[in-house]
Design a protein around this nucleic acid. Structure first.
Lengths: 176, 176
DNA sequence: TTCTCAAGGTTGAAGATTCAACATATGACC
DNA sequence: GGTCATATGTTGAATCTTCAACCTTGAGAA
């Protein structure tokens, strides 16, 4: 099934790659491990690209922008701190700051310093932003269904989410 | 386990989200589907970021650059057409062209028009590029093992790869 | 031959992201 | 109060990606 051949990952070592198929911890990847990893790499590359393309085409939004608007739409008072929003959308504060500035200039969002603690900045979803989100949502959700949710059995989707969480756990863990 | 709450995805509709848990094709996502999808989104966002950070820190390479060098290292004559390389690394030709120009300026790669058909351009891995790749590979493979390969059972890794392929199939399929 | 066309690739400008430096606000400590 | 340290955000420059326009090569038709 893999169209991109697997013998390209660790470099120059393919002949020594025939170790027992499921032994953990070896120096290189076995050919089965490599196939799976390369599939994951392609998924990480192309799925965001596909989602972005759909949203861009149908709503002139990037996926991160959609996520940010969606997070705000569900928050109390349609308001979140910049730092919370950055955490929840997995983006850097700097990127978010630039991004919100653009959303602000489009009239979807506004910012104000938190009245209770001036260190924080609150991002607030405006009616135009809510309208934008509501108009973008149906096509976006349908697309996600077609590519992912309806494309896997309930059980496999559930496991996919679990595997993702397990990998994310390692990413967040304090190294080693 | 999900730290970012799920009630932020389709916007403004959470109260109607209590449909039967595994019914396919509804208008919105059920809360379980949403959790899984958001986990996948976070994975797509953070895993490439983590891999890039490791490679950048240890080898001053991005993941796409690493992939390109690795593909070339395994190709016959350490040579591939630009278009093939773009396909195999899931990047646009334009992005690849800029990227290879940078790799060229670092002495890792060179380009030449295909002698047999001048429409194609061949990218060729130079010894310095091979050396770079070999020095980067061990730490990179170890990192991929720690995050993904050794973090899931053989069976789950295999299924993860299959799910990825299944989703990729939909992405490549001619719409609808 | 000559014309036209499609495919492969490059380029420069515009747009987005990253990086490091810089504010600013608050709390802790003296 | 005054000073220092820390956490939150912002900004501008550098870098990277995307987008559209363009160039070139070779194939095929007239």
């Amino acid at each position: 099934m893999s169209s991109a051949r697997g013998d390209c990952y660790p470099p120059g070592m393919t002949t020594e790659n025939d170790a027992p198929a499921d032994e953990h911890g070896g120096p290189w990847l076995t050919s089965g491990e490599l196939d799976s990893w390369l599939s994951v790499v392609r998924l990480m590359t192309r799925l965001p690209w596909a989602i972005d393309a759909q949203l861009q085409r149908d709503a002139d939004l990037s996926m991160v922008e959609y996520m940010a608007l969606a997070m705000l739409s569900e928050a109390a008072g349609r308001t979140l701190r910049m730092s919370t929003l950055a955490e929840n959308t997995s983006t850097s504060l700097s990127r978010l700051s630039h991004m919100v500035k653009r959303l602000e200039s489009r009239g979807y969002v506004r910012r104000e310093p938190d009245p209770a603690d001036g260190r924080f900045t609150n991002a607030i979803l405006l009616p135009a932003g809510m309208a934008k989100l509501e108009s973008a949502a149906p096509a976006h959700v349908a697309f996600v269904r077609r590519l992912v949710v309806d494309n896997l059995s309930g059980e496999r989707l559930r496991r996919l989410g679990q595997d993702a969480e397990r990998i994310l756990g390692r990413i967040d863990s304090p190294a080693r």
